[in-house]
Design a protein around this nucleic acid. Structure first.
Length: 749
RNA sequence: UGGGGAUUCGCCAAGUGGUAAGGCCCUGGCUUUUGGUGCCAGUAUUCAUAGGUUCGAAUCCUAUAUCCCCAUCCA
């Protein structure tokens, strides 16, 4: 595994290395209110995968805090999904509802600390009082209740003395917080509802923001991984744990981008609509992106796992091309599954010069699949081929059977077309053909060259099967609703003809129907009398692609012009500073602008300038390096001062150090607050400018990299950076880059 | 609009100051009794845009643009 790690694994590794945690614990925390989909699979793979990689644990936990939405049937579906994907939850499912008593105690604690209160505003009032994104909210009068009153009320809420909605428990944080989520979030609501596990014991239920962080803490979770939309909730997560003083190895939340796939929908709401609206046959409809759907369609767990590995984990919202998923399943099945022949749209072929009957021994696997196994393939005078494997007037590049062009019947003989039989309306109903007796597969001495081999079945022995051809559920890339549904997402072929071994031998449940795609014996509707096969995915079809009307003409890639917004005007004071900096000090306008507009920066700059008269050098360091530190902390928190920066710039000015070393020194200063001259001395960072010392190193580098020298001389001038970098590296950054640059240039000319 | 995220090829995605990884898609070629597979080759002078710092910038600084999330007693 030399591949780069995703950002979550990097965090985990750092936390392990720093000793923040001795052991890694993650959790997969779905709410049991819907069937899991492939987005859940991504989360499962992340959480269980990280636990496995770092020898930790992952808890499967049902986040069942809302009794009105959840159901035990979803719990089963969730367990199934995790198991099917090959992860182990030790047969131990955790439930947030098991923590209700503990959660209640924590709430009491918060009330006693004066950090939570019972609010009795109506729902509308609460909404109103919350304010908007631009306007601060305000507290209602109930926020002033005493601890005793709050305690009393909350206990009575629990006892069920109040009606739904009469009171709520709220955290006392900040009604004017810029983060809306922090405006006194609700912790508990009254809900006289039957909980599928807790029964009727509770009449209050905790909210997500209160229950989740504490459940993580209770379970000893170290890394609480969730999706991006919870970023705003992280503040509450931390607030609850911090306020309750829960410190030891407490969990921290990290967010990644949820999975989106084009031509499908992933939200639970939309999925539920499709199921309830009857657009699909149920949660396990093969067109749905649910785990149950993929399973029913014939996807393997491995293919889903591979897919999740391939798409990676990051923080950018993204829409993965469904072609990537299709690749995963093809790639997986290619090496696993027997090849058989099935004719979907039969065209009868009578081989006039063939008498009798034979059975051909045919391997289930092509040469490039290292698996053993074969079946008997009946061959006779009457066969069926695929209707589009014959064309009377073929286009250029058509490889299959035509009046002039013979074709091989896969595993059998070469045939030529003799006669075309049509019905009254001109449709082809049958082909009369002749076969070439010396062309039998494996012992062909006919010398006839054919362009392709087509699949076929023997008319007498073929079995009739139902084939369900699934296509993407939505025709648009980013579907909005039912109006985007692909009318051809399901095509049922009642009378497809398959070779007999598929039914009688049943060598597998998944097959490749040669030249068509991968198919799966439907686990529910398949019977011996009426076999049913689901199309998992088609084979890649470069011929079909060519013949299809060239739909997407190369879209005009007009480079979009970006209209930049206006830059805010400077205040008079800023303008004065700007003029002084550009005029008196000779700074360029960009640097002067940055400095003038930032009070802290300009102050810092002028202070350093009073120590050292090097306006340009100081300005550069202050605008670029000091500014970075100032973004992260207050000016008063800086470990270094203006005088030290002046000292640093002085060393650059008198060429003691290069600007490259200066950055290194600066980083040290920012960390330790040490004097720059001390750092330079302690680390021996004085730069080497003597060509006599540098030249031998350059020679060595050049000798070591003949390939790159050749490339450079061939015109790849980018490589100059490579050579300079190498020299700098081997001198620990001390070589004077300007000198090195000139020298390397000279050497390689 | 206040706050929080994000932006590297058609789609994902590495890269964190020194030669722009990889996969999918696509395009050629070779192999092939699957127009499949496999193999080989091609595909970003450029990292949202504009400036700045530097010998050297996708990476650091400044400004701007665009997209996503937050005003459920959902999670």
């Amino acid at each position: 595994m030399s591949e780069s790690k995703d950002f979550l694994r990097k965090i985990v590794e750092e936390d392990l290395k720093s000793g923040k945690y001795k052991e890694i614990t993650t959790r997969f925390p779905p709410e049991p209110n819907g069937f899991p989909h492939i987005g859940h699979a991504k989360s499962i793979v992340i959480n269980f995968g990280i636990a496995r990689d770092y020898h930790g644990h992952c808890n499967l936990r049902m986040d069942d805090t809302n009794p009105t939405k959840e159901d035990t049937k979803y719990v089963e579906a969730l367990k199934d999904a995790v198991e099917w994907l090959g992860f182990d939850f030790d047969n131990n499912v955790y439930f947030t509802s098991d923590y209700f008593p503990k959660l209640y105690d924590y709430a009491i604690e918060l009330i006693k600390m004066g950090k939570a209160y019972v609010d009795s505003l109506t729902e509308e009032e609460i909404r109103e009082y919350r304010g908007t994104v631009t306007q601060a909210g305000k507290r209602g009068k109930y926020a002033e209740r005493s601890v005793e009153e709050n305690l009393d009320l909350f206990q009575r809420m629990k006892k069920g003395e109040f009606k739904d909605g009469e009171h709520v428990l709220r955290a006392k944080i900040d009604m004017s917080a810029a983060n809306m989520k922090m405006r006194d979030p609700l912790l508990y609501r009254i809900r006289h509802a039957h909980h599928f596990r807790a029964g009727d014991e509770w009449s209050i239920y905790p909210m997500y923001d209160f229950a989740h962080c504490l459940s993580d803490y209770i379970e000893g979770v170290s890394h609480s991984i969730c999706t991006l939309e919870f970023e705003n909730n992280r503040d509450i997560y931390d607030w609850v744990l911090d306020t309750l003083g829960l410190k030891t190895a407490r969990p921290y939340q990290h967010e990644f981008a949820r999975l989106g796939i084009n031509h499908t929908v992933m939200s639970k709401r939309k999925l539920l609509e499709l199921v309830q609206g009857g657009q699909v046959s149920g949660w396990d409809d093969p067109r749905l992106p649910t785990i149950a759907g993929y399973k029913r369609k014939g996807y393997t767990a491995e293919s889903i796992l591979n897919f999740c590995d391939q798409i990676g984990i990051a923080k950018a919202n993204s829409m993965v091309d469904v072609a990537q998923l299709e690749f995963s399943i093809r790639d997986d099945l290619n090496t696993k599954v027997p090849r058989v022949m099935c004719v979907l749209d039969p065209l009868k072929v009578t081989i006039e010069n063939y008498e009798g009957h034979e059975e051909i021994d045919a391997s289930y696997y092509p040469d490039d699949v290292p698996k053993e196994g074969s079946r008997k393939l009946p061959f006779s005078r009457e066969i069926y081929i695929e209707r589009d494997d014959f064309m009377e007037n073929p286009p250029k590049g058509y490889f299959r059977l035509t009046p002039e062009q013979p074709v091989r019947l896969k595993h059998a003989y070469i045939i030529s077309c003799k006669e075309i039989i049509k019905d009254a309306s001109g449709n082809i109903t049958e082909i009369k053909a002749k076969y070439h007796p010396d062309s039998k597969s494996g012992s062909d001495t006919s010398g006839i060259k054919v362009k392709s081999a087509i699949h076929w079945v023997s008319a007498n022995e073929a079995k009739t099967v139902e084939v369900r051809l699934y296509d993407r559920l939505f025709s648009t890339e980013a579907p909005e609703g039912v109006e985007d549904i692909n009318p051809d997402s399901l095509r049922i072929i009642k009378n497809a003809l398959v070779e007999p071994a598929v039914i009688t031998e049943r060598p597998d449940v998944r097959f490749q129907f040669e030249r068509q795609g991968y198919f799966y014996a439907d686990p529910i509707d398949y019977t011996d009398e009426k076999p049913v096969f689901n199309k998992i995915v088609g084979l890649k079809d470069s011929w079909g692609k060519k013949t299809k009307t060239t739909k997407s003409a190369p879209r005009a890639q007009a480079k979009k012009v970006q209209i930049d917004g206006e830059v805010a005007a400077m205040s008079d004071h800023e303008q004065t500073l700007f003029d002084k900096y550009t005029g008196e000090f000779g700074l360029n306008s960009e640097v002067a602008d940055t400095l003038a507009r930032d009070e802290h920066l300009s102050k810092f700059y002028e202070e350093s300038l009073s120590v050292l008269n090097s306006p340009v050098g100081l300005a550069n360091i202050v605008t670029n390096e000091v500014a970075r530190e100032l973004k992260q902390m207050q000016a008063s928190e800086l470990k270094f001062d203006a005088k030290q920066i002046a000292g640093l710039v002085k060393m650059i000015d008198d060429t003691t150090i290069s600007s490259k070393i200066a950055k290194q020194v600066f980083e040290e200063m920012a960390k330790t607050g040490e004097d720059p001259s001390q750092i330079v001395e302690a680390k021996g960072l004085v730069q080497i400018s003597d060509p006599a010392k540098i030249l031998p190193i350059i020679d060595e580098i050049i000798a070591k990299n003949p390939d790159n020298v050749a490339k450079f001389k061939a015109g790849n001038t980018k490589l100059l950076g490579f050579f300079v970098g190498q020299v700098l590296k081997s001198t620990g950054g001390k070589a004077n880059p300007k000198v090195v640059n000139g020298l390397v240039h000279e050497k390689l000319k």
